[in-house]
Design a protein around this nucleic acid. Structure first.
Length: 405
DNA sequence: TCTGGGGTCCTAGGACCC
DNA sequence: TCTGGGGTCCTAGGACCC
Protein backbone atom coordinates (compact mmCIF):
# COMPACT_ATOMS: atom_id res chain seq x y z
CA UNK A 1 0.00 0.00 0.00
CA UNK A 2 1.31 3.46 -0.98
CA UNK A 3 0.94 5.60 2.15
CA UNK A 4 0.08 9.25 1.47
CA UNK A 5 2.34 12.23 2.17
CA UNK A 6 -0.52 14.00 3.95
CA UNK A 7 -3.27 12.81 6.30
CA UNK A 8 -6.19 15.27 6.24
CA UNK A 9 -9.29 14.82 8.41
CA UNK A 10 -12.75 16.24 7.91
CA UNK A 11 -14.84 16.35 11.06
CA UNK A 12 -18.58 16.91 10.86
CA UNK A 13 -20.79 17.18 13.94
CA UNK A 14 -23.81 14.84 13.75
CA UNK A 15 -27.13 16.72 13.26
CA UNK A 16 -25.43 19.53 15.17
CA UNK A 17 -28.20 22.01 16.04
CA UNK A 18 -30.68 19.24 16.77
CA UNK A 19 -28.15 17.41 18.96
CA UNK A 20 -27.43 20.56 20.98
CA UNK A 21 -31.18 20.97 21.54
CA UNK A 22 -31.39 17.34 22.74
CA UNK A 23 -28.80 18.15 25.41
CA UNK A 24 -31.25 20.74 26.74
CA UNK A 25 -34.37 18.61 26.19
CA UNK A 26 -33.08 15.04 26.69
CA UNK A 27 -36.67 13.82 26.98
CA UNK A 28 -36.96 14.36 23.20
CA UNK A 29 -34.29 11.77 22.35
CA UNK A 30 -35.53 9.52 19.56
CA UNK A 31 -38.35 11.90 18.57
CA UNK A 32 -38.75 13.58 15.20
CA UNK A 33 -37.51 17.11 15.98
CA UNK A 34 -37.10 19.94 13.49
CA UNK A 35 -35.07 23.09 14.10
CA UNK A 36 -36.45 26.20 12.41
CA UNK A 37 -39.25 28.66 12.90
CA UNK A 38 -39.66 31.60 15.23
CA UNK A 39 -38.82 32.44 18.81
CA UNK A 40 -42.52 32.32 19.60
CA UNK A 41 -42.34 28.57 18.96
CA UNK A 42 -40.03 28.01 21.95
CA UNK A 43 -41.13 25.22 24.34
CA UNK A 44 -43.11 26.30 27.43
CA UNK A 45 -43.00 24.61 30.79
CA UNK A 46 -46.46 23.98 32.24
CA UNK A 47 -47.40 24.40 35.90
CA UNK A 48 -47.14 20.65 36.49
CA UNK A 49 -43.55 20.75 35.19
CA UNK A 50 -44.27 19.10 31.83
CA UNK A 51 -43.07 20.75 28.66
CA UNK A 52 -45.28 21.85 25.81
CA UNK A 53 -43.75 21.96 22.32
CA UNK A 54 -44.83 23.53 19.06
CA UNK A 55 -45.79 20.99 16.39
CA UNK A 56 -44.91 21.30 12.74
CA UNK A 57 -48.58 21.01 11.72
CA UNK A 58 -49.41 24.34 13.38
CA UNK A 59 -46.71 26.29 11.54
CA UNK A 60 -47.75 28.86 8.96
CA UNK A 61 -45.60 31.22 6.95
CA UNK A 62 -42.19 31.38 5.37
CA UNK A 63 -39.15 29.61 6.72
CA UNK A 64 -37.08 26.51 6.14
CA UNK A 65 -35.79 23.54 8.10
CA UNK A 66 -32.37 24.35 9.53
CA UNK A 67 -31.66 20.83 10.81
CA UNK A 68 -33.68 17.77 11.75
CA UNK A 69 -33.04 14.76 13.96
CA UNK A 70 -32.41 11.41 12.29
CA UNK A 71 -35.96 10.35 13.29
CA UNK A 72 -37.31 13.36 11.34
CA UNK A 73 -35.06 12.55 8.36
CA UNK A 74 -36.62 9.07 8.30
CA UNK A 75 -39.92 10.85 7.67
CA UNK A 76 -38.42 12.74 4.71
CA UNK A 77 -37.67 16.05 6.44
CA UNK A 78 -34.27 17.52 5.50
CA UNK A 79 -32.30 20.76 5.81
CA UNK A 80 -33.37 23.67 3.58
CA UNK A 81 -36.86 22.20 3.03
CA UNK A 82 -39.72 24.68 3.44
CA UNK A 83 -41.38 24.26 6.84
CA UNK A 84 -44.85 24.09 5.24
CA UNK A 85 -43.71 21.22 3.05
CA UNK A 86 -42.04 19.54 6.02
CA UNK A 87 -45.32 19.85 7.94
CA UNK A 88 -47.05 17.79 5.25
CA UNK A 89 -44.52 14.99 5.68
CA UNK A 90 -44.22 15.06 9.46
CA UNK A 91 -47.16 16.97 10.99
CA UNK A 92 -46.50 15.61 14.48
CA UNK A 93 -42.80 16.48 14.49
CA UNK A 94 -41.71 18.84 17.26
CA UNK A 95 -40.60 22.29 16.13
CA UNK A 96 -37.87 24.14 18.00
CA UNK A 97 -36.59 27.64 17.17
CA UNK A 98 -32.87 27.93 16.40
CA UNK A 99 -30.70 29.20 19.27
CA UNK A 100 -27.51 30.30 17.55
CA UNK A 101 -25.83 31.61 20.70
CA UNK A 102 -26.00 28.13 22.14
CA UNK A 103 -24.72 26.51 18.92
CA UNK A 104 -21.82 28.95 18.78
CA UNK A 105 -20.91 28.03 22.35
CA UNK A 106 -20.80 24.30 21.55
CA UNK A 107 -18.94 25.10 18.35
CA UNK A 108 -16.17 26.77 20.34
CA UNK A 109 -16.12 23.84 22.78
CA UNK A 110 -15.72 21.13 20.15
CA UNK A 111 -13.06 23.04 18.21
CA UNK A 112 -11.05 23.62 21.39
CA UNK A 113 -11.34 19.91 22.21
CA UNK A 114 -10.00 18.97 18.77
CA UNK A 115 -7.15 21.48 19.08
CA UNK A 116 -5.90 19.68 22.18
CA UNK A 117 -5.20 16.63 20.03
CA UNK A 118 -4.41 18.23 16.64
CA UNK A 119 -3.87 22.00 16.42
CA UNK A 120 -3.80 22.56 12.63
CA UNK A 121 -7.47 23.32 12.05
CA UNK A 122 -9.41 25.01 9.23
CA UNK A 123 -12.78 26.44 10.21
CA UNK A 124 -15.56 25.52 7.79
CA UNK A 125 -18.47 27.02 9.66
CA UNK A 126 -20.23 26.28 12.89
CA UNK A 127 -20.31 22.48 12.74
CA UNK A 128 -17.38 21.28 10.64
CA UNK A 129 -13.60 21.60 10.31
CA UNK A 130 -10.66 20.22 8.40
CA UNK A 131 -7.68 19.02 10.43
CA UNK A 132 -4.16 18.38 9.13
CA UNK A 133 -3.03 15.24 10.97
CA UNK A 134 0.22 14.82 9.02
CA UNK A 135 2.46 15.95 11.89
CA UNK A 136 0.39 14.63 14.79
CA UNK A 137 2.52 12.21 16.88
CA UNK A 138 1.67 8.56 16.28
CA UNK A 139 -0.30 9.11 13.09
CA UNK A 140 2.15 7.02 11.01
CA UNK A 141 2.48 4.22 13.56
CA UNK A 142 1.54 0.69 12.58
CA UNK A 143 -0.76 -0.88 15.16
CA UNK A 144 -0.58 -4.67 15.20
CA UNK A 145 -0.31 -5.38 11.48
CA UNK A 146 -2.45 -2.40 10.48
CA UNK A 147 -0.43 0.37 8.77
CA UNK A 148 -3.47 2.65 9.21
CA UNK A 149 -3.74 1.87 12.93
CA UNK A 150 -2.05 5.12 13.95
CA UNK A 151 -4.45 7.29 11.91
CA UNK A 152 -7.44 5.45 13.27
CA UNK A 153 -6.20 5.85 16.84
CA UNK A 154 -5.74 9.61 16.39
CA UNK A 155 -9.22 9.94 14.87
CA UNK A 156 -10.65 7.95 17.80
CA UNK A 157 -8.82 10.22 20.24
CA UNK A 158 -10.29 13.32 18.55
CA UNK A 159 -13.79 11.87 18.72
CA UNK A 160 -13.34 11.00 22.41
CA UNK A 161 -12.08 14.52 23.15
CA UNK A 162 -15.09 16.10 21.41
CA UNK A 163 -17.43 13.73 23.26
CA UNK A 164 -15.95 14.56 26.68
CA UNK A 165 -16.09 18.32 26.04
CA UNK A 166 -19.61 18.51 24.60
CA UNK A 167 -21.53 15.26 25.08
CA UNK A 168 -21.99 15.26 21.30
CA UNK A 169 -20.96 12.82 18.58
CA UNK A 170 -19.28 13.58 15.29
CA UNK A 171 -18.14 11.75 12.18
CA UNK A 172 -14.60 11.85 10.85
CA UNK A 173 -13.15 11.06 7.44
CA UNK A 174 -9.38 10.80 7.07
CA UNK A 175 -7.77 10.60 3.62
CA UNK A 176 -4.84 12.13 1.70
CA UNK A 177 -6.80 15.35 0.96
CA UNK A 178 -9.72 17.63 1.83
CA UNK A 179 -11.91 16.61 -1.11
CA UNK A 180 -11.85 12.91 -0.23
CA UNK A 181 -12.08 13.49 3.52
CA UNK A 182 -15.22 15.57 3.06
CA UNK A 183 -16.81 12.65 1.21
CA UNK A 184 -15.41 10.07 3.64
CA UNK A 185 -16.81 11.74 6.77
CA UNK A 186 -20.32 11.10 5.45
CA UNK A 187 -19.81 7.43 4.70
CA UNK A 188 -20.25 6.15 8.26
CA UNK A 189 -22.48 8.88 9.66
CA UNK A 190 -23.46 9.24 12.47
CA UNK A 191 -20.67 8.64 15.00
CA UNK A 192 -18.30 7.07 12.46
CA UNK A 193 -14.66 7.02 11.45
CA UNK A 194 -13.68 6.35 7.83
CA UNK A 195 -10.04 6.15 6.76
CA UNK A 196 -9.35 5.88 3.02
CA UNK A 197 -6.25 5.75 0.85
CA UNK A 198 -6.05 6.22 -2.92
CA UNK A 199 -6.39 2.44 -3.26
CA UNK A 200 -9.99 2.75 -2.02
CA UNK A 201 -11.03 5.17 -4.78
CA UNK A 202 -12.59 2.58 -7.15
CA UNK A 203 -14.55 0.74 -4.46
CA UNK A 204 -15.60 3.55 -2.07
CA UNK A 205 -15.73 6.76 -4.14
CA UNK A 206 -16.49 5.89 -7.76
CA UNK A 207 -19.86 4.23 -7.00
CA UNK A 208 -21.15 7.43 -5.33
CA UNK A 209 -23.58 9.89 -6.96
CA UNK A 210 -21.88 12.92 -8.54
CA UNK A 211 -23.58 15.26 -6.05
CA UNK A 212 -21.51 13.75 -3.22
CA UNK A 213 -18.55 15.80 -4.44
CA UNK A 214 -18.26 19.13 -2.65
CA UNK A 215 -18.45 21.63 -5.50
CA UNK A 216 -21.00 19.80 -7.64
CA UNK A 217 -24.27 21.51 -6.77
CA UNK A 218 -27.82 21.31 -8.14
CA UNK A 219 -26.98 22.86 -11.53
CA UNK A 220 -23.81 20.97 -12.39
CA UNK A 221 -25.31 17.78 -10.93
CA UNK A 222 -28.34 18.02 -13.19
CA UNK A 223 -26.20 18.73 -16.25
CA UNK A 224 -23.94 15.77 -15.53
CA UNK A 225 -26.91 13.44 -15.19
CA UNK A 226 -28.37 14.75 -18.46
CA UNK A 227 -25.03 13.91 -20.10
CA UNK A 228 -25.35 10.38 -18.76
CA UNK A 229 -22.83 10.75 -15.94
CA UNK A 230 -24.47 9.54 -12.74
CA UNK A 231 -21.56 8.45 -10.56
CA UNK A 232 -18.15 9.83 -9.70
CA UNK A 233 -16.72 6.86 -11.59
CA UNK A 234 -18.63 7.95 -14.71
CA UNK A 235 -16.85 11.32 -14.55
CA UNK A 236 -13.51 9.61 -13.96
CA UNK A 237 -14.04 7.50 -17.06
CA UNK A 238 -15.01 10.48 -19.23
CA UNK A 239 -12.53 12.07 -21.66
CA UNK A 240 -11.13 15.18 -19.91
CA UNK A 241 -11.15 17.13 -23.21
CA UNK A 242 -14.86 16.37 -23.55
CA UNK A 243 -15.50 17.53 -19.96
CA UNK A 244 -13.73 20.80 -20.82
CA UNK A 245 -15.93 21.17 -23.93
CA UNK A 246 -19.06 20.69 -21.83
CA UNK A 247 -18.11 22.66 -18.71
CA UNK A 248 -15.36 25.08 -19.72
CA UNK A 249 -11.61 24.93 -19.14
CA UNK A 250 -11.57 25.57 -15.43
CA UNK A 251 -14.56 23.56 -14.19
CA UNK A 252 -13.98 20.75 -16.70
CA UNK A 253 -10.42 20.24 -15.49
CA UNK A 254 -11.56 20.40 -11.90
CA UNK A 255 -14.25 17.75 -12.49
CA UNK A 256 -11.65 15.43 -14.02
CA UNK A 257 -9.22 15.88 -11.11
CA UNK A 258 -11.91 15.66 -8.43
CA UNK A 259 -13.29 12.40 -9.82
CA UNK A 260 -9.78 10.93 -9.60
CA UNK A 261 -9.54 12.04 -5.97
CA UNK A 262 -6.87 14.65 -6.70
CA UNK A 263 -6.83 17.77 -4.53
CA UNK A 264 -3.77 19.64 -3.26
CA UNK A 265 -5.49 22.44 -1.34
CA UNK A 266 -3.80 23.11 2.01
CA UNK A 267 -5.55 23.29 5.37
CA UNK A 268 -5.87 27.04 5.91
CA UNK A 269 -5.71 27.99 9.57
CA UNK A 270 -6.42 31.69 9.23
CA UNK A 271 -8.51 33.82 6.85
CA UNK A 272 -9.83 37.36 6.75
CA UNK A 273 -13.51 38.06 6.02
CA UNK A 274 -14.32 39.42 2.54
CA UNK A 275 -17.74 40.87 3.30
CA UNK A 276 -20.31 41.21 6.05
CA UNK A 277 -24.05 41.30 5.39
CA UNK A 278 -27.53 41.32 6.84
CA UNK A 279 -30.73 40.37 5.08
CA UNK A 280 -34.33 39.60 5.89
CA UNK A 281 -37.26 37.91 4.19
CA UNK A 282 -40.61 39.54 4.91
CA UNK A 283 -43.63 37.71 6.31
CA UNK A 284 -45.54 38.98 3.26
CA UNK A 285 -44.36 40.56 0.02
CA UNK A 286 -44.12 44.34 0.34
CA UNK A 287 -44.93 47.03 -2.21
CA UNK A 288 -42.30 49.67 -2.95
CA UNK A 289 -44.83 52.53 -2.91
CA UNK A 290 -47.59 51.23 -0.67
CA UNK A 291 -45.19 49.97 2.01
CA UNK A 292 -42.52 52.62 1.46
CA UNK A 293 -42.34 53.73 5.10
CA UNK A 294 -42.09 50.17 6.38
CA UNK A 295 -39.41 49.27 3.84
CA UNK A 296 -37.40 52.34 4.80
CA UNK A 297 -37.64 51.38 8.46
CA UNK A 298 -36.55 47.79 7.76
CA UNK A 299 -33.58 49.07 5.76
CA UNK A 300 -32.63 51.41 8.61
CA UNK A 301 -32.61 48.45 10.99
CA UNK A 302 -30.55 46.29 8.63
CA UNK A 303 -27.95 49.05 8.34
CA UNK A 304 -27.96 49.49 12.10
CA UNK A 305 -27.33 45.80 12.73
CA UNK A 306 -24.69 45.63 10.00
CA UNK A 307 -22.90 48.59 11.57
CA UNK A 308 -22.96 46.79 14.93
CA UNK A 309 -21.48 43.66 13.31
CA UNK A 310 -18.72 45.72 11.70
CA UNK A 311 -17.94 47.53 14.95
CA UNK A 312 -17.76 44.25 16.88
CA UNK A 313 -15.41 42.74 14.31
CA UNK A 314 -13.55 46.05 13.90
CA UNK A 315 -13.90 46.32 10.13
CA UNK A 316 -14.92 49.06 7.70
CA UNK A 317 -15.58 48.58 4.00
CA UNK A 318 -15.30 50.57 0.78
CA UNK A 319 -18.11 48.84 -1.11
CA UNK A 320 -21.73 48.94 0.00
CA UNK A 321 -24.23 46.72 -1.77
CA UNK A 322 -27.93 45.96 -1.63
CA UNK A 323 -29.77 42.75 -2.46
CA UNK A 324 -33.41 42.73 -3.40
CA UNK A 325 -35.51 39.66 -4.02
CA UNK A 326 -38.85 40.17 -5.74
CA UNK A 327 -41.92 37.96 -5.89
CA UNK A 328 -41.08 35.15 -8.25
CA UNK A 329 -37.69 34.85 -6.51
CA UNK A 330 -35.90 37.13 -8.98
CA UNK A 331 -32.85 38.59 -7.24
CA UNK A 332 -31.14 41.87 -8.06
CA UNK A 333 -27.98 43.37 -6.58
CA UNK A 334 -26.45 46.83 -6.81
CA UNK A 335 -22.99 47.85 -5.61
CA UNK A 336 -21.48 51.21 -4.84
CA UNK A 337 -17.78 51.60 -4.19
CA UNK A 338 -16.86 54.67 -2.17
CA UNK A 339 -13.60 56.55 -1.95
CA UNK A 340 -13.35 55.91 1.78
CA UNK A 341 -14.25 52.86 3.89
CA UNK A 342 -17.45 53.22 5.90
CA UNK A 343 -18.70 51.47 9.02
CA UNK A 344 -21.48 53.55 10.58
CA UNK A 345 -25.18 52.92 10.00
CA UNK A 346 -25.62 56.45 8.63
CA UNK A 347 -22.81 56.14 6.08
CA UNK A 348 -23.99 52.69 4.97
CA UNK A 349 -27.57 53.97 4.70
CA UNK A 350 -26.51 56.87 2.45
CA UNK A 351 -24.70 54.52 0.05
CA UNK A 352 -27.73 52.21 0.10
CA UNK A 353 -29.80 55.17 -1.06
CA UNK A 354 -27.56 55.52 -4.15
CA UNK A 355 -27.91 51.82 -4.89
CA UNK A 356 -31.70 51.89 -4.52
CA UNK A 357 -31.97 54.70 -7.12
CA UNK A 358 -30.59 52.32 -9.75
CA UNK A 359 -33.35 49.70 -9.35
CA UNK A 360 -36.83 49.72 -10.86
CA UNK A 361 -39.54 48.48 -8.55
CA UNK A 362 -42.24 46.96 -10.70
CA UNK A 363 -42.82 43.94 -8.50
CA UNK A 364 -43.40 43.33 -4.82
CA UNK A 365 -40.39 42.64 -2.64
CA UNK A 366 -39.91 39.50 -0.54
CA UNK A 367 -36.35 40.15 0.70
CA UNK A 368 -34.02 43.04 1.33
CA UNK A 369 -30.34 42.87 2.28
CA UNK A 370 -27.29 45.06 2.83
CA UNK A 371 -23.67 44.11 2.45
CA UNK A 372 -20.33 45.81 3.08
CA UNK A 373 -17.35 44.47 1.16
CA UNK A 374 -13.79 45.49 0.29
CA UNK A 375 -13.13 45.25 4.00
CA UNK A 376 -10.30 46.96 5.82
CA UNK A 377 -9.49 46.07 9.42
CA UNK A 378 -9.46 48.92 11.94
CA UNK A 379 -5.77 48.27 12.60
CA UNK A 380 -4.96 49.13 8.97
CA UNK A 381 -7.10 52.24 9.16
CA UNK A 382 -5.07 54.01 11.85
CA UNK A 383 -4.08 56.87 9.56
CA UNK A 384 -7.55 58.34 9.09
CA UNK A 385 -8.24 59.67 5.57
CA UNK A 386 -8.85 63.39 5.26
CA UNK A 387 -12.16 63.29 3.40
CA UNK A 388 -15.28 62.06 5.15
CA UNK A 389 -17.43 59.58 3.21
CA UNK A 390 -20.30 62.04 3.10
CA UNK A 391 -18.09 64.59 1.35
CA UNK A 392 -17.09 61.93 -1.16
CA UNK A 393 -20.75 61.39 -1.98
CA UNK A 394 -21.06 65.06 -2.81
CA UNK A 395 -23.43 65.95 0.01
CA UNK A 396 -23.08 68.25 2.95
CA UNK A 397 -21.46 66.38 5.82
CA UNK A 398 -24.18 65.36 8.27
CA UNK A 399 -21.80 65.42 11.21
CA UNK A 400 -18.25 66.09 12.26
CA UNK A 401 -15.44 64.02 10.79
CA UNK A 402 -15.51 61.49 13.64
CA UNK A 403 -13.18 58.52 13.85
CA UNK A 404 -14.73 55.39 12.37
CA UNK A 405 -14.35 53.30 15.51
C1' DT B 1 -48.40 24.84 0.07
C1' DC B 2 -42.26 26.26 -2.90
C1' DT B 3 -37.53 28.25 -1.76
C1' DG B 4 -33.69 31.43 5.39
C1' DG B 5 -29.47 33.86 6.31
C1' DG B 6 -24.62 34.25 6.14
C1' DG B 7 -20.91 33.63 3.35
C1' DT B 8 -17.05 32.61 -0.84
C1' DC B 9 -15.57 32.34 -5.45
C1' DC B 10 -15.99 32.70 -10.52
C1' DT B 11 -17.18 34.87 -14.93
C1' DA B 12 -17.76 38.42 -18.08
C1' DG B 13 -18.13 43.03 -19.82
C1' DG B 14 -16.89 47.86 -19.59
C1' DA B 15 -14.03 51.72 -17.97
C1' DC B 16 -9.71 53.38 -17.70
C1' DC B 17 -4.74 53.52 -17.91
C1' DC B 18 -0.19 52.72 -19.94
C1' DT C 1 -6.20 56.49 -41.19
C1' DC C 2 -10.55 52.46 -37.51
C1' DT C 3 -6.12 50.30 -35.30
C1' DG C 4 -3.07 46.60 -29.89
C1' DG C 5 -2.41 44.42 -25.88
C1' DG C 6 -2.04 43.99 -20.97
C1' DG C 7 -3.50 45.10 -16.30
C1' DT C 8 -6.66 46.59 -12.73
C1' DC C 9 -10.91 48.02 -10.87
C1' DC C 10 -15.86 47.98 -10.76
C1' DT C 11 -20.36 45.89 -11.37
C1' DA C 12 -24.00 42.15 -11.88
C1' DG C 13 -25.24 37.74 -11.71
C1' DG C 14 -24.88 33.04 -10.54
C1' DA C 15 -23.21 28.63 -8.49
C1' DC C 16 -22.18 26.69 -4.42
C1' DC C 17 -21.55 25.82 0.64
C1' DC C 18 -22.90 25.54 5.72
Amino acid sequence: MQLPDRWIAHLDMDAFYASVELLRYPQLKGEAVVIGGRRADAPRQLEDGRWEYARLRNYTGRGVVTTSTYAARDLGVFSAMGLMKAALRAPDAILLPADFDSYRKYSRLFKAAVAEVAPVIEDRGIDEIYIDLTDVPGVRDTVGHDPLGGVKAVAREIKNSVGRATGLTCSIGVTPNKLLSKIASELEKPDGITVLTMDDLPTRIWPLAVRKINGIGPKAGEKLVKLGLHTVGDIAAADPAWLVEQFGESYGQWLHNASHGRDSRPVVTHSEPVSVSRETTFERDLHAVHDKALLGQIMDELCERLAQDLARKRYAGKTVGIKLRFEGFVTVTRDQTLKTPVATAADIRRAVGLCLKRVSFDKRLRLMGVRVGNLVHASELAAAPAASPTAVLGQAPARENLPLF
